[in-house]
Design a protein around this nucleic acid. Structure first.
Length: 257
DNA sequence: ATGGCAGGAAGCTCCTGA
């Protein structure tokens, strides 16, 4: 089973790229972030035509997450139950016996902002909830835009970014806290090229200059990790005309059954 | 030096993203 995550930065704008990608790659589950669409505007028919069932929770202009799947999605749940939040950032579903959590972690803006405090509170609630997801389901995968570069090797210029939002110690501690519940960063299960990133700023020719961060992740629970065969970044998607500023991440799970 | 792109909603400029 191939699972993927992609921050599309507007599904309306990126629908054509998504369709081409899904027609080309045999991906079974796709988690999307920043769809920026109200539910009534979600392109259900276009994705159904490609063989995908859509689950989604969205809002106008900001946020919005979706899970596309070639197989039925069961027990679909929106949000973090204990965390009342009008921002549509979390969607979870069970597909082929695997709990799939699609997450769009808050950006945080800057470390001295209210949005940063919201990010840390959000992450704390997310971690608590993931613990219950782990005990409920066992086979759990968390895919999404974490807005956290876990280590210096995930940052093109660690010196320049030191202490900034996306790399600050409190954010990295929150990421480790989630992993320590019993998750592995699937990307680091395998040898990877240096300077592997998933996001490049639209400005300053950052992509061409390889000035990126690795902030989109696929975590797999310990019990699933032995089944993980690969994790790759679809860097080519960032090189398209009118791209999202994020590239997709894809992981392959060898599931018995 | 706080810029630089891009998307959305509004409406000819602003907010947000990361």
């Amino acid at each position: 089973m191939k699972i993927a995550t992609w921050n599309v930065n507007s599904l309306k704008v990126r629908l054509g790229q998504l369709q081409e990608w899904l027609a080309r790659e045999a991906i079974d589950v796709v988690c999307l972030q920043e769809t920026k669409l109200e539910d009534s505007a979600f392109p259900v028919e276009a994705l159904d035509a490609l063989g995908y069932h859509s689950s989604f929770t969205g809002q106008k202009t900001y946020n919005g997450v979706a899970i596309l799947s070639r197989y039925p999605a069961e027990h679909v749940e929106s949000g973090i139950p204990s965390f009342d939040d009008p921002q549509k950032r979390v969607l979870s579903a069970t597909i082929c016996g695997v709990r799939v959590v699609c997450a769009y972690v808050p950006n945080g803006q800057s470390v001295d902002s209210d949005k940063y405090r919201y990010k840390l509170e959000w992450l704390s609630a997310f971690q608590r909830w993931l613990q219950s997801q782990l005990s409920d389901w066992g086979r759990v995968t968390v895919l999404g835009d974490f807005n956290i570069a876990p280590e210096d090797q995930d940052v093109h210029d660690p010196k320049a970014w030191e202490g900034q939002v996306l790399v600050s110690e409190a954010e990295r501690a929150a990421f480790r806290g989630i992993c320590e519940l019993g998750f592995r960063d699937s990307f680091r299960l395998f040898p990877q090229a240096e300077r592997s990133f998933t996001w490049w700023d639209y400005r300053m020719n950052a992509f061409r200059r390889k000035m990126g961060l690795r902030i989109d992740h696929i975590l797999v629970s310990e019990i699933l990790a032995p089944a993980c065969r690969a994790c790759t970044i679809e860097t080519g998607m960032r090189a398209l005309e009118r791209p999202s500023d994020h590239a997709p991440v894809v992981a392959e799970l060898a599931l018995e059954s």
